[in-house]
Write a protein that binds this DNA or RNA. Sequence first.
DNA 1: CGAAGGCAAGAGCAGTGCTCTCGTTTGTTG
DNA 2: CAACAAACGAGAGCACTGCTCTTGCCTTCG
Lengths: 254, 254
Amino acid sequence: MQLPKARTARALARDQITADILAAARRRLADEGPAELSLRAVARDVGMVSSAVYRYFASRDDLLTALLVLAYDDLGSAAEEGDAAVSDRDDFWARWSAALRAIRRWAVANPGDYALLYGSPVPGYAAPQTTIEPAVRVILVILGVVTDAHRAGAIAGAGTSATMESDAPGAEGLAASVAEAIDFVRARGLLEGESDVPVELVVRTLMAWTTVFGTVSFELFGHLVGSVSDLDRYFDAVIERLGRDLGLVAPHGR
Amino acid sequence: MQLPKARTARALARDQITADILAAARRRLADEGPAELSLRAVARDVGMVSSAVYRYFASRDDLLTALLVLAYDDLGSAAEEGDAAVSDRDDFWARWSAALRAIRRWAVANPGDYALLYGSPVPGYAAPQTTIEPAVRVILVILGVVTDAHRAGAIAGAGTSATMESDAPGAEGLAASVAEAIDFVRARGLLEGESDVPVELVVRTLMAWTTVFGTVSFELFGHLVGSVSDLDRYFDAVIERLGRDLGLVAPHGR
DNA sequence: CGAAGGCAAGAGCAGTGCTCTCGTTTGTTG
DNA sequence: CAACAAACGAGAGCACTGCTCTTGCCTTCG
């Protein structure tokens, strides 16, 4: 199958310059914050005049949207690689820890990008549909670990943990209120094997993800200074607690 | 006790104008976001020229700091009132739910303030010491509920719930890494009765607070659109799950 | 009463997002 | 190959921002 059209020199140059602008913008985002990102400054960095940038991005918000997609994909890849790095695919506890640690590692390494993704959004700005697909990659990773663990029978059911009682009050409320999420995930084909993963478990995973996000945000946004001394250890402990609450069987030896 | 100095007309006017500026800024913050808040626009709202505002606030950041303290106090009051509204002081489940619901209610009603408090901060800006005291009021409320419940024996200990085993791996890690927070809380005199509240429980409460914050942030920052249909019910379910994980005894009848 | 200091107003500076116009370069088509 | 059209970079310009400085007015206090 041939390319729809031969790549002209100009088209190639356009791609290159577009990438250059994005790279420069991302570099600035590292220690500047989305609100302070100046399109003119980015233009100066790539050696252009500000108006020329508008040939590539219709507005500053458009540039931010492109950065958004880039960052979401980067985070998603980091999480996927963290999970994939665990050679023993049946050591779900290791995969759980690796994935979540990778998420935090990426956030700490790219605080500007993280703030762009999960910080306060511009009130008037609504992220376009194109951003939601890369946005769900992260949660699909950890949901995938839980799904695999469940299928392998590595998740403690009701009885072992008091938190998994199916008749717990509020369970049906939870399930109903996130029904859309389940449908969405199913539609995406992640839970290929029909409905063998209980909704309850998906909801629990969502809550765990919320806690992870809250912890990382607290750390990066400075709400933990003076409260938590060893952030690495704290996060590891949170991971462990979450896996435990989820019903993931504890690691073998220790 | 007399006031240190007689309030002159000018001093009174200064207080009034300061309050007017803050009120106008907060009004704008409701649908504008911290990054977009324009000092000049605020000045116009109160009928002043921009330079005149600098007589009252040294810089835009100073204005934001003042708003920060105001919002923290407002949120703290909302949480305290939510807890205090429960007449049966021994119904800890009700107090737990009421406090957390009040927090979310405030956040939904004041999204601009919430974004200012818990959104991505300005990279160069460091909140001064004066903000940390009003900032801890919220968590002191929910920590107070848990403390009261523990003293009344309304928190299930180890054995009832698998999550409270004191020999669980990572427990000592958690306790050590948040030692500063514990010390801080103790120094503030919240945990007056010495060390009768296990560190483990304080840490769990901190994690619960993190989850609440993450859930509210996800809701307000739009990360739940298309995933959760009934936000009220979802939050209630999260509250219930958190209280259960914490070991709070379930409500009597149902 | 008179000096001192708080105060509002205005001009001005450097920066921003964005629009428009102007030649130039590049690609396509007759 | 020549002609037209589209894409492009540069620059000027508009309205806006945070912030500084100067100029007078007016309250306060010695």
